[in-house]
Design a protein around this nucleic acid. Structure first.
Length: 631
DNA sequence: CAGTCTACTTAGAAAGTCAAGT
DNA sequence: ACTTGACTTTCTAAGTAGACTG
């Protein structure tokens, strides 16, 4: 064990500080690879520029099983009368029917788009009859799927086991590929099944039919000399190509947005790991440039060129607030969302004074996935003055930064640092914030549980910075209520349906006290009393028996106190976390080496921070980060 | 250069799993 | 044993960014 550890550490050290893109020194691959679990996998020779692989072999994608018509007893009704649908029309009807209890089916746009596309699938006679969605009754179809789901839940142990094995077989057959001689896991080997498009927010295309994909739609990418995947019987691929400058294995065009979908590798693959590593190395490099860049954009706030001023203010927001770049989007094709460069006048409000601060900018807009970004921030005076200028004589719907595009911004950034783009600032600020927060919050003498709470708090600061929100879990109120005592002070009112500004995490203990905690406190008090009695007893008796009783009571008290601490930590964490999604930053923005170094330094088992798949995804970091890693 | 296309990362919801509490 | 809820995984939409086209 010891030996393996040392080897691993050394392999990691040789890797440290090496820029991924540069061709690494050529080792003897075979001999290194025999070291179980070493970092050798991450230091293999690189390909020439743009080339992603020399060998790629796979089985092609797995197609959705064909449609199974409804049993005769399950009927569709129109104007109260049962109507027998053609198979094609019935299939699309089931897409809607199974969603009947979903909010989507109450939305006008969804209903309109669905009905429109559904009618296209109908036979002429059907189209003649079925003319209004309001007269359609899908309740039997809906019930059928509800029952089916319920039946699945109550399957016997053996039946469940059988299903699991079938899934495993599928994974074995289609889930892996060979890339440059190594077996790699594929991320999404299944072709997306047909269904109704579920766009986020006010998406104009929600409810449209997402067509069934056949092999004739699919382009296969693999090496020329590999075993070409066999298309399903009676079918042919759209195309088989061999493009080693891309990483996808298969692709097709999706029918709603006309965009290309890909089959790609799992994040635990070497290829994905290397690009992730590269991403964090670029962000780390920014650390060496960021002071200069900041003073540069400050100076540019006073530029005589409007274009430069806008760019400088936008960059300030991207840096300070971790806003996304904000590419342009075709309107009418997607929900109306914006990022930094696409902000409109209506999305900001200027307050000469607010919350006791001067020059406050209030942001209120929908960002990616229609997640609301709401923030009031005091800004430096020149920023404020510039914003006033940018907003002068404009309508609310006009672009705030009318002289700026993401392309021009990124072109500028590229000149400041090789590989720098707008999104690098998000990665950089997220990771550096985690590192700073961990430093500020962790106390070496804390228990493991308390350290994990600190970690989660640090993670949460980042998630709030990046505005990673989630819907309050549906079970949240209920489960809190279960914890809550009837006599405790009421908690603050439940949040409104629209995701609003996030409350800052409160470091103080909550005003209310969950029942489970109260119960535990009583147990602790009880145990303490018993310990006292046992101590008195032992003093009086002085025999072995009373000593062992005393010891037992002492251990019990310790155990209970630990449980109490754990519970209250849990409750605090839960409350602070109810609307914050930690996963996205953890997976995409936080350099895993920071977390791994922290675990090592503070003796926190890394499994407490990263699940099994996360550890696989971050295998590269596990192999190279020592306790003294600095981002 | 505007518009379009391509390839990739990032995102939250939903489904699935598992373990602790009753 | 059965439920509940936390945690994980899966799914696929929605971004970023750069190349290509005319």
């Amino acid at each position: 064990m010891r030996v393996v550890r040392l080897l691993r550490l050394r392999a990691a050290l040789t890797l440290l500080g090496e820029v991924p893109r540069r061709p690494a020194s050529r080792g003897v691959p075979g001999s290194r690879r025999t070291q179980k679990g070493s970092g050798a996998r991450w230091e293999k020779e690189k390909h020439e520029d743009g080339v992603k692989w020399r060998q790629l072999e796979h089985k092609g994608p797995y197609f959705a099983p064909p449609y199974e018509p409804l049993p005769d007893g399950v009927r569709f009704f129109y104007e109260g009368r049962p109507v027998r649908l053609s198979v094609a029309a019935e299939e699309v009807a089931t897409f809607y029917g199974r969603m009947l209890d979903h909010e989507y089916t109450t939305k006008e746009v969804f209903r309109k788009n669905f009905f429109n596309d559904w009618r296209k699938e109908m036979a002429v006679e059907e189209r003649e009859v079925i003319k209004s969605l309001d007269k359609c009754d899908f309740t039997e179809i809906h019930r059928y799927f509800v029952d089916k789901a319920a039946a699945r839940k109550v399957l016997s142990r053996e039946e469940k086991q059988k299903l699991k094995e079938e899934a495993e077989k599928l994974q074995q057959e289609f889930g892996y590929c060979i890339l440059d001689g190594h077996q790699e896991k594929i991320g999404n080997f299944k072709i997306e099944p047909p269904g109704l498009f579920r766009g986020r927010g006010d998406h104009p295309k929600m409810g449209m039919l997402k067509r069934r994909i056949t092999p004739e739609d699919v382009v296969i990418n693999c090496s020329r000399d590999s075993k070409i995947p066999e298309p399903p019987a009676g079918h042919q691929w759209k195309e088989v190509r061999s493009d080693n400058t891309v990483t996808w294995l298969a692709a097709w065009t999706e029918s709603v947005q006309n965009s290309i979908k890909y089959i790609m590798l799992n994040p635990c693959s070497k290829l994905k790991g290397e690009t992730a590593w590269q991403k964090f190395e670029t962000a780390r490099r920014l650390r060496g440039f960021v002071d200069e860049i900041r003073s540069q954009y400050r100076a540019d706030w006073k530029s005589r060129e409007m274009k430069t001023r806008q760019r400088a203010v936008a960059l300030y927001f991207i840096d300070k607030l971790a806003l996304r770049a904000g590419n342009e989007k075709e309107d009418g094709e997607a929900a109306d969302t914006v990022g930094c460069c696409s902000l409109r006048v209506e999305h900001v409000q200027l307050h000469p004074e607010a919350d006791g601060c001067q020059h406050v900018v209030e942001f209120d807009f929908l960002g990616k996935d229609c997640i609301r970004y709401y923030n009031r921030v005091p800004v430096e005076k020149p920023v404020y003055k510039n914003l006033q200028l940018f907003m002068e004589n404009k309508d609310p719907r006009d672009d705030l930064f009318d002289r700026l595009t993401t392309t021009s911004l990124n072109k500028h950034l590229q000149e400041l640092m090789d590989g720098l783009t707008a999104k690098v600032f998000r990665t950089y600020n997220a990771s550096i914030t985690l590192q700073e927060q961990l430093r500020a919050l962790t106390r070496a003498e804390d228990s493991i549980a308390a350290k994990i709470l600190s970690y989660n708090r640090a993670n949460r600061v980042v998630a709030i910075l990046c505005n990673h929100q989630r819907a309050t879990p549906s079970t949240f109120e209920k489960s809190m209520q279960n914890l809550q005592t009837k006599v405790a002070a009421p908690r603050r009112a439940p949040s409104p349906a629209l995701k609003g500004p996030l409350p800052l995490p409160r470091a103080s203990a909550q005003a209310w006290e969950p029942a489970a905690i109260q119960a535990k406190k009583e147990q602790v008090a009880e145990a303490r009393a018993e310990l006292r009695r046992a101590r008195a007893e032992h003093k009086a008796q002085g025999d072995g028996k009373s000593r062992s009783v005393l010891e037992k009571k002492r251990r019990l008290l310790e155990k209970l106190q630990e449980q109490l601490a754990q519970l209250s930590v849990q409750a605090t964490d839960k409350e602070e976390n109810k609307q914050v999604a930690l996963g996205t930053s953890k997976l995409n923005y936080l350099d895993p080496r920071i977390s791994i170094a922290w675990c090592k330094r503070f003796r926190v088992p890394v499994e407490k921070i990263y699940s099994k798949t996360q550890r696989e995804r971050f295998a590269w970091a596990l192999a190279m980060a020592g306790e003294d890693f600095e981002f």
